[in-house]
Computed example of a mutant assay.
Amino acid sequence: MNNVLLLTDKLIIGGAEMYFCKLENHLQDNNMTFYSAAATGELYKHIQHKQQFIPLSVKNHAANLKLLSKQVLLKQIDVIHANSLRMLLYSIAIKKLTRRKIKLVYTKHNVTILEKKLPSLFKRVLNEHVEQIIAISNFEKENLLHLGVNEALIRTIYNGVDVEHFSFKQIQPKQAFNVGILARLSKEKNHELFLKIVNELKEVPNVMFYIAGDGPEREFVEEVIKDLKLQHKVMLLGNASNPYEFICNMDVLLLTSIREVFPMVVLEAMAAGTPMMSVDVGGIKEAIVDHETGILIPHHSEREFAKQIQSLQEDEDLRLRLGSKARQKVEESFSLSRMIHSTLKTYQ
């Protein structure tokens, strides 16, 4: 019998946090018991097994380590699955404090400050303390290998989308052609480029733009909309309470990020049958095959995005074909059940 503890920082809206919630909701094995721990936030409502959940402090790390060490001993934890670098460092400390033989699993979702500033130390931490590293794309696996991380430790397990919840929905004709972005309003998501695309198409009739998400860049986004006089063309919706509904209401979803590893929103749009148009960053090309399962833009070019949006607007057959092929690709390679099955294997 293995007792597994899932760790993440805080239950705020984000791709890594939704991944954590999916594991908490769906991990199931007759020979394993699962516990989870995080600082609470808006995603706490998605935690299904609240009796197995350990609430943490946002800032009091000493108290968190004390609480988790006590719980690790009490619940006889055999595996800790860390969902961030901070939680991995917690796990290493807990292992030392409890002197318990614990298998450490680490899912790497994004570029960390440690690997950017002190890559040799980052490599040492992974090689010396982690038994299994989950890379969420082959792109990320290659990055880890380039840093000198032991290949035997790394396993690619793609993010999985719930294909029943994000069911395929054939795009229906609408009065306007709706172009959307679903992302946290933060610098790396590059909403500035999205608004430059809107500006390129502001004189084109029957094309409307929608921004779903919130975050620290909201004020900046509002200022750019005002400066470029785009109030008639773009709507700022705030956090999407129902991401699936938002995706289905779009005729195309854009991803304009400066950097990514393998964003969940790409798979969710593909599953729903909404064409995805993304800049070619990170591991996105592992899901989007250009003009087959979506549209890849080679550079952060508002003109190229605008050109491809107009082409898509004019070609209904292409929109339908992209949506259908994308759904097929998700079912074959990126289903939630596949992700859960592969993750369970890493705990054994």
Rank of each mutant, 00 (worst) to 15 (best):
residue 153 L to Y: 04
residue 164 E to D: 13
residue 181 I to T: 09
residue 172 Q to H: 06
residue 158 Y to H: 06
residue 155 R to W: 01
residue 145 L to D: 04
residue 165 H to Y: 14
residue 196 K to L: 09
residue 160 G to E: 01
residue 146 H to V: 05
residue 156 T to H: 05
residue 182 L to Q: 04
residue 177 F to C: 11
residue 170 Q to P: 05
residue 161 V to Q: 03
residue 193 L to S: 10
residue 166 F to K: 03
residue 181 I to C: 06
residue 178 N to K: 08
residue 148 G to C: 10
residue 174 K to R: 14
residue 187 K to R: 08
residue 195 L to V: 06
residue 193 L to W: 05
residue 165 H to L: 15
residue 190 N to G: 06
residue 161 V to Y: 02
residue 160 G to D: 01
residue 180 G to Y: 12
residue 147 L to D: 06
residue 181 I to F: 13
residue 167 S to H: 13
residue 145 L to G: 06
residue 171 I to F: 01
residue 147 L to H: 11
residue 189 K to I: 07
residue 180 G to D: 11
residue 167 S to I: 13
residue 149 V to T: 05
residue 168 F to S: 07
residue 174 K to V: 01
residue 155 R to T: 15
residue 193 L to T: 07
residue 193 L to A: 14
residue 194 F to W: 05
residue 184 R to N: 14
residue 170 Q to I: 10
residue 148 G to F: 07
residue 181 I to K: 04
residue 162 D to W: 01
residue 150 N to E: 12
residue 144 L to W: 08
residue 161 V to A: 00
residue 149 V to C: 12
residue 186 S to V: 13
residue 184 R to K: 13
residue 185 L to N: 00
residue 166 F to P: 01
residue 159 N to T: 00
residue 157 I to L: 02
residue 173 P to L: 12
residue 166 F to Q: 03
residue 165 H to K: 15
residue 166 F to H: 04
residue 195 L to W: 10
residue 171 I to K: 05
residue 169 K to E: 14
residue 177 F to I: 12
residue 176 A to G: 02
residue 174 K to G: 04
residue 175 Q to G: 10
residue 164 E to K: 11
residue 179 V to C: 15
residue 174 K to Y: 02
residue 156 T to Q: 10
residue 189 K to D: 05
residue 191 H to C: 03
residue 191 H to V: 02
residue 190 N to H: 13
residue 195 L to S: 06
residue 148 G to P: 05
residue 195 L to D: 10
residue 151 E to F: 01
residue 191 H to D: 03
residue 158 Y to I: 02
residue 149 V to S: 04
residue 183 A to W: 04
residue 173 P to R: 12
residue 195 L to C: 07
residue 185 L to V: 01
residue 151 E to I: 00
residue 159 N to P: 00
residue 195 L to I: 07
residue 148 G to K: 12
residue 195 L to F: 14
residue 153 L to W: 08
residue 165 H to M: 15
residue 194 F to L: 12
residue 164 E to I: 06
residue 197 I to T: 03
residue 168 F to D: 12
residue 180 G to A: 14
residue 147 L to W: 08
residue 163 V to G: 09
residue 171 I to T: 02
residue 180 G to F: 10
residue 144 L to G: 13
